[in-house]
Design a protein around this nucleic acid. Structure first.
Lengths: 351, 351
DNA sequence: GGAACCCTTGCACACGGTTGCAAATAGAGA
DNA sequence: TCTCTATTTGCAACCGTGTGCAAGGGTTCC
C-alpha cells in the first residue's frame, strides 16, 4: 500500500494554483517578487497537496545546503551530550539543521566524517573531538566549507578555534587548594592526551612550579569514570598520599571520589580536596557536590554560530581563535569558601 | 581568500580523465558497467581534483537521500544521549547518516521536526520522544517516509513501534521487593505522562493488586534528578513511610536515593529498597549501585535499522510492533540476591 | 570471412528547485 | 484615451547526478 517516494513537486502545486512553476518557487522565497494574491493561492494549493520544498534540490541550486555537520566521539558522555544538545539547538535557531557523525570507531574516521560532510555539501563542520589531518582540512576549506574546532588547540589557519582558558582554571584550582592548606598536590589525568587535557595538566604544574611545589602526575586509560577509580587506587596508595587532586574531567573526578570514599574510607574535603572540570550535571548531585570548572556550553555554541553567520570575508578579518573563561563552580570538595569571583565572572553573572 | 563554494563536479573529473561524464558517475556506482581501466583513470582524476560525489544531487535523482532523521527532546540526558549515540552509529553502519532535530522548545515542534525531515527527503524518521499528530504522520507515510516510534505506545498504523516490556519489568520489580520482605510499596513518577512511564506505573499497580497490596503513587515535575529529590521528600515524610520504591527512571531514582540517604539518613537497602529504570551509566557508579532495568539501546537501534532495510512491501507484511525485554540489572539497592535469570535473559547472556 | 554475442561508452533526458531576462499587465498621470 | 513606469509573470537555462537506450568495438564460433 505505501507506494514509495511519491513526493509532490512544485509543478503540481503550480498546476493546481493555476500559475507557473517559478511563481511557486517565489512564493516560498522570502524576498522574491510575488503579488500577495498569487502567494496566497500558491500557499493554499501547497497546503492542500502537502507540498514541502525539496531542500536537496534547493541546496543544489543555491549551493548552500543548510546542513551543519557535528563530528565527535563518545557522544553518550554527559559533557559531549550537552554539547551536542546545545549545538543542535543553536543550529536550529540559526535556521540550519545538524547532521551528526559519530567517530567512535577510530580517530582516523574524523577524516571520513569530513568527507561525508563534503558529500552532503554541509555549510560547516564543527569538530568536537579528534583532529583531522591538514590535508582534509584544506580540502574542506578550499571547497568553501567552514570548520570550527572545539577544544582542539590546533594551529591550522582557516578554522575557528574555540578554546577554554585551561591554564587560568588550573591556576585558580591551585589557589583554592593552597587556601585549604593543601601541599601534597596531584593531577589525575587520562591517557587520551587531547590538547585541552594536557593544557590543564601543564597549567597546574606550571602554577605549582612558580611557588616551588611539585605535583604527582598519574595518567590512566580513557577519560571515563572507571579510569578515575583506578587513578584513585594508584594515587592513594602512594607512600606520600596527596591531600589535593585536580582531576582532568568530572567523569574522572566522580570515579576518584567514589573510590576515595568507599574503598579508602577518606572524608572529602576533610582528608582530601578534589576538583574536576566540565561541570557535568552529575557534579551537582549531592553524592558528589564537586567543586569544578564549567564548560560554558551555550556560549561555545553561540560563538560558533555567530562566526558561521559572518560572510567569509568578515570571518577572515576576525581573529580565528577565541578563549572562553571556565567559570569556577564552588561546591563542597574543597575546604573553605568561594573566593571573590573574578571581575569578568561577576559582570557576566550580573548581565 | 577562501572564495566560497567552488566544489569540483563530475564534468571536470570527466575532462581530466578523458572520459564522458556518465563514466564518472558509473565509476562511483558499485554495480555499474565500467571497465576496470576507465574506473582507475576516473578514480585517480577524482583524487587529484578532490572530487566528492554530490549527495544532494544524487539524492535528487535517486529519490533516496541517505538521511535518517532523529527527533527528540532532552538530548543531554544520559539515557537519551546513549540512544542518540547508538542510533547515529547504527545509521552509519547501515550506510546512512543521521540528522538530529532537537524538540526541546515545545512539544508541538515534533510536527515541525517531521516537516524538516520531509524538506530533506529523509528516508526515515526515528522519534525518540513526543508524539506527532496523526495528520503529519500520515503525510510522511504518504510521501514514502518510514517512521519508527521508540517507547511511544501509539496505535497508529504504518510506523514501526519499538517498545519495552514495561509491565513485565514492573512485575519482576515487585517480586524482588516481596522477596526482600517489603510490603509498603510506592511508585515515584514524573508528571511527564509518557506512554512508557505510565505503563510502568500501571504494571506495578496491577501486579501489586493481584496479591492485594496497594501502592502509594506520587508524581512530580519532569523526569529529572531534582524531581527524584522532591518525590523523596514527599514520600518519606508520609505518615506510613514506604519500604520499597519503584522509580520510573534512573534519573529520578538517583535523586531519590541521594535525598533518602543524605536528608533522611536512611540506609539503602536496609531501611528502604529502590529500583529504577533505564540502566544509565550512573546507576552503576558506586555511590548508587542501583538495581534497575536496562534499556537494550543497541538492540533498539538494531531493530529499527533492520526494519528500515526491508523493502516497503516486506515491512508491511512484518508485524509493526516489537516488544523488547528490559533485562533486570541486579545491584545493591534491593535486599537479597539476584533471582535466577529468565530463560530469555540467560540465552542472551550466553551468546 | 561473417554472424552472433557481450561488454563498454556516450547521448540525452529526468530529478526539483532558483533566477536573469524579457514580456505582459496594472496603475498613474497628462 | 494615451503614454510612461513599476510591478508581476513566464520562459528557459542551470545546479550535479543517475540511467535507459542505442551505438561502437572486440571476441568467439562456425
Amino acid at each position: 500500500m505505501p507506494s514509495p517516494r511519491k513526493f509532490v513537486s512544485a509543478r503540481e502545486v503550480a498546476e493546481r494554483a493555476g500559475v507557473s512553476r517559478s511563481a511557486v518557487s517565489r512564493a516560498f522565497t522570502p524576498g522574491a517578487s510575488v503579488s500577495e494574491d498569487t502567494r496566497r493561492r500558491v500557499l493554499d494549493a501547497a497546503n492542500e497537496l502537502g507540498y514541502h520544498v525539496n531542500h536537496l534540490a534547493r541546496g543544489l541550486s543555491l549551493k548552500e545546503s543548510g546542513i551543519v555537520c557535528l563530528v565527535g566521539s563518545e557522544l553518550g558522555t554527559p559533557y559531549r551530550a550537552s554539547l551536542v544538545k546545545a549545538m543542535t539547538q543553536a543550529a536550529q535557531d540559526a535556521g540550519k539543521v545538524a547532521m551528526v557523525i559519530n567517530t567512535d570507531r577510530s580517530d582516523a574516521s574524523v577524516g571520513a566524517a569530513l568527507r561525508q560532510a563534503l558529500h552532503y555539501r554541509a555549510d560547516a563542520s564543527i569538530i568536537l573531538s579528534g583532529l583531522p589531518d591538514k590535508s582534509i582540512t584544506r580540502l574542506c576549506l578550499e571547497n568553501g566549507q567552514r570548520i570550527v574546532l572545539i577544544n582542539r588547540d590546533d594551529d591550522q589557519e582557516g578554522p575557528l578555534r574555540i578554546n577554554l582558558q585551561d591554564d587560568e582554571a588550573a591556576r585558580r584550582a591551585l589557589i583554592a587548594f593552597l587556601r585549604a592548606g593543601c601541599r601534597r598536590l596531584a593531577f589525575a589525568n587520562s591517557e587520551a592526551g587531547t590538547p585541552s587535557l594536557m593544557a590543564r595538566e601543564r597549567g597546574f604544574l606550571a602554577a605549582a612550579g612558580t611557588i616551588g611545589l611539585t605535583v604527582t602526575v598519574e595518567r590512566f586509560g580513557p577519560s571515563i569514570y572507571d579510569s578515575g577509580r583506578e587513578l584513585a587506587r594508584r594515587l592513594l596508595t602512594a607512600p606520600e598520599r596527596p591531600d589535593a587532586v585536580f582531576c582532568a574531567t568530572d567523569l574522572i573526578a566522580c570515579g576518584f571520589l567514589d573510590t576515595a570514599r568507599h574503598e579508602f574510607g577518606l572524608a572529602v574535603p576533610e582528608d582530601l580536596c578534589v576538583t574536576g572540570f566540565d561541570d557535568i550535571e552529575q557534579a551537582g548531585w549531592s553524592s558528589y557536590s564537586l567543586t569544578t570548572f564549567a564548560q560554558p556550553v551555550s556560549d561555545i555554541a553561540r560563538e560558533a554560530f555567530a562566526w558561521l553567520r559572518l560572510t567569509p570575508e568578515e570571518a577572515t578579518r576576525r581573529p580565528a581563535a577565541v578563549a572562553l573563561e571556565a567559570r569556577m563552580v564552588w561546591r563542597r570538595t574543597v575546604r573553605g569558601s568561594a573566593p571573590a569571583p573574578s571581575p569578568a565572572a561577576r559582570s557576566a553573572a550580573e548581565s
